[in-house]
């Protein structure tokens, strides 16, 4: 499947035009909001996963912590993807040729599938019924995948 035409088209859309033409809008509504969403996303990932790893809030039931963190994870994810689409649209053809962009998209896809298809269903019930090693593996994988999404994102800007 040839994706380049899609990236060429993205730059011609209204969103791509705004981001390309107005540097100030791109930097504040694109980049800065993206980073604020990153704070909330990172917070919700770490609060939940460090709790599952028994590092923080050991005196608060992990079911409550993960449930609440997930609520904010969803909000942050919507915000971070929307601002991400806005940013990518403005420089879409450059993104198409950027290795870190594709690494980030792959990690993002894996992260979303992992959270919604595996982690959430697993943690729905009582955590005491689950094998503690599996819980810790899931928490470590979640931290790793989201930090990888963020780090590869920063490296898009450093490479070409």
């Amino acid at each position: 499947m040839e994706l380049l035409p899609f990236f060429e088209w993205a730059e011609t859309t209204f969103l791509g035009y705004i981001g390309k033409t107005y540097g100030g809008v791109y930097a504040t509504f694109g980049q800065s909001l993206h980073l604020m969403a990153l704070a909330v996303l990172g917070g919700s990932v770490l609060v939940a996963d460090l709790r599952l790893l028994n590092v923080i809030m050991k005196d608060v039931p992990s079911e409550i912590v993960t449930e609440q963190a997930h609520k904010w994870f969803r909000i942050a994810l919507v915000m971070i993807i929307s601002t991400g689409i806005f940013m990518a649209a403005a420089v879409a053809q450059r993104m198409y040729h950027n290795d870190f962009f594709w690494a980030k998209m792959s990690a993002l896809l894996v992260g979303i599938i992992f959270v919604f298809a595996i982690k959430r269903p697993l943690l729905k019930g009582s955590h005491a019924d689950l094998n503690p090693i599996v819980i810790k593996m899931v928490a470590s994988a979640s931290i790793l995948v989201w930090f990888s999404v963020a780090a590869t994102g920063r490296w898009i800007g450093f490479s070409g």
Binding site: V110, F114, I118, K119, L122, L130, N131, I133, V134, M137, V138, S140, A141, S142, L144, V145
Partner: peptide, 12 residues
Amino acid sequence: EKIAAVAAGAII
């Protein structure tokens, strides 16, 4: 749990 362990292991 088995699926989660395999997926988490693969991601790590």
